[in-house]
Design a protein around this nucleic acid. Sequence first.
RNA 1: GGAACGGUGGCAGAGCGGCCUAAUGCACUUGUCUUGAAAACAAGAGGGUUAAUAGCCCCGGGGGUUCAAAUCCCCCCUGUUCCGCCA
Length: 430
Amino acid sequence: MIDVRLLRSDPASIKASLARRGLPNLAQQIDQASNFDSRLRDISAQRDTIRSSINDLSKQVGSLRREGKDADSEKAMGESRSLGEKERLLQAEFELVNVQLRDVLLNIPNLPHVDAPNGSGDHDNPVVKGPVGLAEHFLDCQRVPHWQTATELGILDNERATKISGAMFAMQRGLGATLSRALCQFALDQNADVFEEIRPPSLVTTATLTATGHLPKFADEAYAIERDDLWAIPTGEVPLTYLHAGETLEEANLPVRLMAYTPCYRREAGAAGRDTRGMLRSHEFDKVEILAIATPEQSPELLQELVARAESLMIELELPYRIVEICTGDMGASHHRSFDIEVYAPGCDAWLEVSSVSWFSDYQARRADVRFKRAGQKGTEIVHTLNGSALAVPRVWAAILENYRQADGSVRIPDVLHPYMRGATEMRPK
RNA sequence: GGAACGGUGGCAGAGCGGCCUAAUGCACUUGUCUUGAAAACAAGAGGGUUAAUAGCCCCGGGGGUUCAAAUCCCCCCUGUUCCGCCA
């Protein structure tokens, strides 16, 4: 949520900033929010004046009774009663406008960072680093899509996954399954120096999913368990962001760094028929997420840290990668500034997004009501949140199968994963 | 799923529907005293909203009764214990 105080003091700058996203109707939504806000303040001022009178009268009733002045207390009670009716009407109006304001605010996206590049879509995302480690010529044996190699190796069984769960589910077997788990453990271990490992719930409440910005706008993307009013998480970001919801943190304890392996569930509502083969897109996948809760001052440096950590995994895995910055027209609604790490997969001849690192400024934290207190100062401020995939398992899995494929059809396992593979150093057809 | 009892300020823990503007203790801050500290004494101290040091709101959450609710009523969430079921 954007800051209503900024909405009051400088709506023009909000409009100018959001115009960079190139979305229609945003200026009208800002005006609407402004109108609701000023009405709300007007109503609450009137209501509070009346409440003040009622409070006074009630105290008078108490003391008049004690003094035995029954006639006077009856009079005060009557007065208070009629004020109460007015108060009820104003309160009803307040609640109505408050809901309207919130509905508008929840749908207004975050303001992009001044340094975020302008653009209208993903074709405008500038490559800010790399390609790194990209061979000039890939061997023919690397030009095989991972689904073909995986079938030869017997480590991917999407037909049976479909039998079990329907289309767009994946299932790895044998060393393929082990490789998925190895990637998770590797990613967690690489960040365990400063990140606390969390194993959060994968089913969350509506309030939790709203805080990250996935609701109300993107309800179609999430799996709902209606009977229990729960949602399956689309990313570990969701429970981790809400972990400190409603709390006030001490400045001295910031930044808080958390990481989690979680399954991620996505309906892929708009993507039917796209990337149907292999491991590039499915309804359920594994991911290791890293997240930071910070002061505004700490955030720019943390953004770089999170990118560097995601990047270092690709370096360790010796996969060719590049980093792109997300332009204003392609940025997620909650994002303030974002970078993607893409790995090159020679078999598909595609750059695969394996990590997305974002700074949300105070947008999510205001929705989740996470605050911090500066040492020695009164009051509190909204924290900033940042997060990124350390590693999205299926796409890295796919990239390994393509980059590490050898002439005899076997696939080498990256050195850094050997400790997690029960001694296996390669995967061969049976 | 069933039953019983709980949810109050950083913590502990009181609180007959009206001086609750929430007692008391511990912890905290500042001052006095002291070379310094401890102790003692004194004072102070939360958050939200607001232009505001005014007002309003905050005793798990939401409704209701009342002139007035931490206190009474209803619903929900949550904790502990016991029973049932279960990995």
